[in-house]
Nucleic acid binder design. Structure first.
Length: 384
DNA sequence: ATCGACACAAAGGA
DNA sequence: GTCCTTTGTGTCGA
C-alpha cells in the first residue's frame, strides 16, 4: 500500500444530509425519494417498486444506501432546477400534459466548502425519473396488448396518446404525434452554457469504449394512476441492484439486446456498442421487463475535462452544471424546416425534440488526484 | 497547468 | 480462505 491512499471513510453524518447544506431547493437523497413522495408531494407514492428498491425504501432519516460499498461517499446530490418547457406536450383531446423531470446525482459528488465537488476521473451515477402529469379523468386508454410480464398495477401507455405542439417560424403551430420518449444527460459551463463533454464508460473502463452518455428510450407507463416513464431495457442490462445500468443507444437496434450474449457474470453489464443502426421498432416488439423500475440510471459517467482555475486564488472559478433532458422523438417528415423547437437529428428519419430540461447549480470538477489538493496550502483538500 | 494511460490497491461478491 | 470484478487514485509522459 505504497501508491494508493486508503479508501475514503464513510461520510460524517453531517455530509449525509444534503438538505441541510444545499443552498438551492431541496435535493434528493436517493432515487427512492421520488417514491417517498419527497419531490412531488402532490403525487402519490408508487407501490409497484422493484423489490430491490422497495426493500430499501426506508425512511430517509435512516440514510439507507441502495448502492453497495457503503464506504464510498455517496448520495449527496445537488438539486436539479426545472426550466421552462421548450416544447409542449398534449393529448389528442388537447389536454395539456405537464412533465416533471426528477433527477439526482446519486454517486460521485461531494459537498465541500459550500460547493459541489467532483473529480474528473471518478464515476458519477445520474438518475432520472419522469412523471407525466395528467388528471385521472384524462388518462389514456391502456393498450390492449400490454405485456403479460407487467405487474398488474402497470400498463404501458401508447406513445401516440401524446402529441407535441411545434412552433413554426411563421408563427403558427403544428401538432405532431410522439413516436417515443427518451432522456439523456449532458453538461455545460455554468456561465456561458457552452457544452461540456461527458463520457460514459463500460465496466471495463479503460479497456472498453468511452462514449457520450446514451439517449435512453423510455416508455410511459400507467402505474397506480400515474404515468411514469419506464426505461426500455432488456433483462441482461439489469444490474445486480435492480437498476438499469445500460440502455438502448440511439444507434443500436432494439432487438440486438435480446440476442446479444452480454455476460451477466457478477454485476457486470457491459453495454454493447458494437452494432450500429437506429431502430424505429415500436416498443411493443420489446416487452417491458417486469423488473424495470421507473428510474433511468446513467452509470459510470465522467466529466471529460476539469473546471478551470481550481484552487487558484484571485481567479474566476469555472463551474459546470449537469443537465437532464427529456426528448420526444417524432418523424422527421412531420418536422419540416419551419420548426422553431430545439431539434436534434436521429437516425432513420427520427428527430428528437427537446421537451424540457432540468439542471444543477455549479459543480467544480477537479482534474487531478485528491492527494494533490490535500497537499495544498490550507490542507485537507481546501478549495480556495 | 491538463489529460490519457498504466498501474496498484481496496472492497465486495462468487 | 482464494479468485475475480469494480473502482478510487497515484504516477508519469505528452
Amino acid at each position: 500500500m505504497t501508491t494508493s491512499a486508503p479508501r475514503p471513510e464513510p461520510l460524517p453524518a453531517q455530509y449525509a444530509i444534503p438538505l441541510a447544506l444545499e443552498p438551492s431547493p431541496p435535493a434528493l437523497l436517493l432515487p427512492t425519494a421520488y417514491h417517498a413522495g419527497l419531490l412531488s408531494p402532490a403525487l402519490s407514492p408508487v407501490s409497484s417498486l422493484h423489490p430491490a428498491l422497495s426493500s430499501q425504501n426506508a425512511p430517509l432519516s435512516g440514510l439507507q444506501f441502495i448502492f453497495p460499498r457503503a464506504s464510498r461517499p455517496l448520495l449527496c446530490t445537488p438539486s436539479f432546477s426545472g426550466l421552462a418547457p421548450i416544447s409542449h406536450l398534449q393529448q389528442p383531446n388537447l389536454h395539456a400534459v405537464r412533465v416533471q423531470i426528477n433527477a439526482a446525482i446519486s454517486r460521485g459528488l461531494r459537498f465541500e466548502s459550500a460547493r459541489w465537488l467532483a473529480y474528473r476521473r471518478n464515476y458519477l451515477s445520474i438518475t432520472i425519473n419522469v412523471v407525466f402529469d395528467i388528471p385521472l379523468s384524462a388518462l389514456p386508454t391502456p393498450q390492449p396488448s400490454s405485456s403479460p410480464l407487467l405487474p398488474r398495477s402497470r400498463q404501458s401507455v401508447d406513445n401516440h396518446n401524446f402529441s407535441i405542439v411545434l412552433d413554426l417560424r411563421n408563427g403558427s403551430q403544428r401538432v405532431v404525434k410522439v413516436k417515443f420518449f427518451a432522456v439523456t444527460v449532458v453538461a455545460e459551463d455554468e456561465v456561458n452554457g457552452r457544452p461540456v463533454e461527458l463520457v460514459q464508460h463500460t465496466s471495463k473502463r479503460d479497456q472498453g469504449p468511452r462514449r457520450k452518455p446514451v439517449v435512453a428510450r423510455i416508455r410511459p407507463t400507467l402505474s397506480d394512476g400515474r404515468i411514469m416513464a419506464t426505461p426500455i431495457s432488456h433483462p441482461a442490462s439489469l444490474g445486480a441492484h435492480g437498476l438499469v445500468e445500460d440502455f438502448i443507444p440511439m444507434d443500436r437496434p432494439a432487438s440486438a439486446g435480446l440476442s446479444s450474449n452480454n455476460p451477466t457474470r457478477g454485476s457486470s453489464t457491459s453495454p454493447d456498442y458494437s452494432t450500429g443502426h437506429d431502430s424505429e421498432h415500436e416498443q411493443t416488439s420489446f416487452d417491458l421487463n417486469h423488473e424495470s423500475a421507473e428510474i433511468v440510471c446513467f452509470e459510470r459517467i465522467q466529466f471529460k475535462r476539469a473546471t478551470a482555475n481550481n484552487g487558484r486564488k484571485n481567479t474566476a472559478q469555472q463551474m459546470f452544471r449537469v443537465v437532464a433532458i427529456l426528448y420526444a422523438a417524432v418523424d422527421e417528415t412531420e418536422c419540416f424546416d419551419g420548426v422553431v423547437s430545439n431539434a436534434e437529428h436521429g437516425m432513420n428519419g427520427i428527430r428528437y425534440l427537446e421537451i424540457q430540461r432540468v439542471a444543477t447549480g455549479g459543480v467544480m470538477v477537479r482534474g487531478r488526484s485528491p492527494g494533490h489538493y490535500a497537499d495544498r496550502v490550507g490542507g485537507g483538500g481546501m478549495i480556495q
